Simulated scan of single mutants.
Amino acid sequence: MDIRTPRERLPYSAIVDRDPLPAPQGARLIVWPIVNVEDWDISRAMPRQVLPAPTGMAVTPDVPNWAWHEYGMRVGFWRLKQAFDRWGIRPTLSINGRVCLSYPRIAGAAHEAGWEFMGHGYIQMPMHQVEDPREMIARTVQEIAAFTGRKPLGWLGPGLTQKLDTVDLLHEAGIRYIGDWVLDDQPCRLRAGQGQMVAMPYSVELNDIPMMAVQHHSAGEFLQRVTDSFDRLYQEGGEQVRVMGIAVHPFLSGVPHRIKYFEQAFEYMLGHEGVQFMTGEQILAWYEQAAPARGE
């Protein structure tokens, strides 16, 4: 397997030089909502912390921060799902494979509602710490397929982490789009294995982890940032269709003091014509038809 750097996988392309893509149903903006659900292993260091240990030293087991995440799975997820059900929007579920076993109530509700399942590692830990990435990817795909009846087409690395050969391993496992390469407002193609992979416009800016857990903004920042981004992309979409990814986590956006800003942001976008809310799988199907792949 040839190990390629990102620049070797992805030719540079200026968006102002591209031919306009035929938009789905005449839309000028595609909104891609993603809900991330994860399994935090109590035997490991927690992926995020809201409450540092009293001495500033990381501890294991880290029960307070595990419980912070658990609130999202017990309560926060259901606030988010209620909102999506009310709007008739089917988001993409970025899901650790083990969630299908440890939280079948959540996985079952999302599957019943028709949400797309996107692989997000087996448990929440960086790809760089996985001893056998090929086996982990296969196990994640297997768990999702066993639960939903079909293999996922999309992948998001835990914390967007990947190694230089991860794209090839994912392509080998049947994955056809990834959210880890946050570098464009449109889908674009990467060289992967013996074929190609589509990099989907995920987001680290319209994402409640950097916004709330890392940068510690006030709850209303989510509404401001989403609507400001929407306005600009909606304007630019009049000439060249754009894709806007929005990523949330139940333990952050699903809590009482933030949920209203999440709801207000989506209600604002729903008030505009020429906007399509799509899953990653739907965006992939549109893009493959709008810009067919060419042989290398």
Rank of each mutant, 00 (worst) to 15 (best):
L206P: 00
P210W: 02
G157N: 04
V226L: 07
G121P: 05
T92C: 09
V275F: 09
S229M: 05
A14P: 02
L206W: 00
Q49S: 15
R4W: 08
R139W: 11
W181H: 10
L170Y: 08
Q282F: 03
I209W: 10
W68G: 00
P250S: 06
I95T: 14
L270K: 08
T55E: 15
P250M: 08
I15G: 03
R105F: 12
I178V: 15
G26F: 04
E131R: 13
P20H: 04
E112H: 02
M200T: 13
V248G: 06
Q276E: 13
N65E: 02
G108W: 04
G295W: 13
H272C: 08
F266P: 00
P52I: 04
Q240M: 07
V275L: 11
E239G: 13
Y71Q: 09
L223E: 15
P54M: 11
I246D: 05
D231A: 15
A67S: 10
S229Q: 09
V37D: 00
D39S: 10
L164P: 07
D132N: 15
Y234V: 08
T161E: 04
L29P: 04
Q264G: 06
Q282M: 05
A45E: 11
L223V: 13
D41H: 15
D180L: 12
W68N: 13
E205I: 04
L170W: 02
E38D: 11
G149T: 03
S13C: 13
D39V: 09
R189V: 09
R44Y: 05
E112I: 06
R191P: 00
G271F: 09
D17P: 02
A173K: 02
H249T: 11
I42N: 10
G280Y: 12
G237N: 01
A293H: 10
K151S: 11
Q194A: 14
A27G: 07
F266S: 06
A219H: 05
A113G: 00
P54D: 03
D41C: 06
Q25E: 14
M211Y: 01
A145G: 09
L156Y: 09
T60H: 10
D2H: 15
Y287P: 01
G274Q: 07
P158E: 10
A265T: 09
W115K: 00
P152K: 06
P104K: 02
A291T: 08
V99A: 14
T5W: 07
V50W: 14
L170Q: 07
M211S: 11
D39Q: 10
L270H: 03
M244E: 00
G114N: 02
E143F: 05
G193N: 06
P152R: 03
R4Y: 08
E112M: 05
Y103R: 14
P6C: 11
Y103E: 13
G97Q: 12
P20L: 08
P54C: 12
Q194F: 00
Q25D: 14
V198Y: 03
A53V: 07
V99T: 15
R294A: 12
G238M: 00
P11V: 01
P158H: 04
H257V: 11
G174Y: 10
F147N: 10
L190E: 05
L160Y: 15
G220K: 05
Q264I: 08
P133T: 11
H111S: 11
D184V: 09
L284K: 01
V255I: 11
G149N: 04
G254L: 13
M244H: 01
V99P: 03
I259W: 06
P256E: 01
